[in-house]
Simulated scan of single mutants.
Amino acid sequence: MTGSRIASLGHHQPASVLTNEDLAALVDTSDEWIRSRVGIRTRHRAGDDEPVDDLAAGAAAKALAGAGLAPDDVDLVLVATSTAIDRSPNTAARVAARLGMSSPAVMDLNVVCAGFTHALATADHAIRAGSARRALVIGADKMTAVTDWTDRTTCVLTGDGAGAAVLEAVDGDGEPGIGPVLWGSVPTMGNAVRIEGTPPRFAQEGQTVYRWATTQLPPIARQVCERGGVDPVDLAAVVLHQANLRIIEPVARRIGAVNAVVARDVVDSGNTSAASIPMAFSKLVERGEITTGDPVLLFGFGGNLSYAGQIVRCP
Rank of each mutant, 00 (worst) to 15 (best):
A260L: 02
V186W: 14
T29V: 05
V170D: 01
F202M: 02
D75H: 12
G206C: 04
W183Q: 14
L55I: 01
E205L: 07
R128A: 14
H12R: 04
V156P: 04
R287S: 14
Q207A: 09
R94C: 00
A169K: 13
D294C: 05
D54R: 15
G293L: 01
G270A: 07
D124P: 14
T158G: 15
D22R: 04
A56D: 00
L305P: 11
Q223W: 06
L76M: 13
R87V: 14
T91L: 03
T150R: 13
D72E: 03
G190M: 08
I248E: 00
E286N: 10
P51D: 04
R201M: 12
T153C: 01
D265W: 01
A257N: 03
A145K: 10
G66W: 11
V137E: 13
S306C: 12
V146R: 07
C155G: 07
R134T: 14
D141R: 08
P200L: 04
K283A: 12
A70Y: 00
A63V: 05
G190S: 13
P14N: 00
A203S: 12
L78F: 10
D86V: 12
A67Q: 05
A129P: 06
D173H: 06
Q223Y: 13
V52W: 06
G68A: 14
T83W: 13
D151W: 08
L136R: 11
A169P: 14
A57T: 08
R194V: 13
W149T: 10
E289L: 14
G303Y: 15
G100K: 00
W212N: 10
N259P: 06
G100T: 05
C113M: 04
G100S: 11
D234T: 05
S131H: 11
T272W: 06
G270R: 06
A203Q: 10
L69C: 09
R45E: 15
R211H: 09
N191G: 11
Q310A: 15
S185V: 09
L157V: 04
V112R: 14
L18F: 02
D31N: 07
D48S: 14
V258F: 08
D22Y: 01
D294F: 09
A25W: 08
V38D: 01
D171C: 02
Q242I: 00
A56N: 09
I127P: 13
A123F: 08
E168H: 01
I277Y: 05
G309N: 03
P14I: 00
L120H: 13
D124T: 12
A263L: 02
T150K: 11
L76N: 09
G228F: 11
G163I: 00
S88L: 14
A213H: 03
T19E: 04
G139N: 12
Y210P: 00
G161S: 12
N271Y: 02
V312K: 03
S30Y: 09
V52T: 15
V74W: 13
I85Q: 13
I85F: 15
R253T: 07
A93Y: 02
P176W: 02
V238A: 04
T29C: 04
N259D: 11
A84C: 07
V193K: 12
Q207Y: 10
V170M: 05
A67G: 12
R43S: 07
F299V: 07
A280W: 05
L9A: 08
A84T: 10
N90Y: 04
H12L: 03
V267G: 10
V146W: 04
V258R: 11
R227W: 11
R128P: 12
V137K: 06
G288Q: 05
C155A: 07
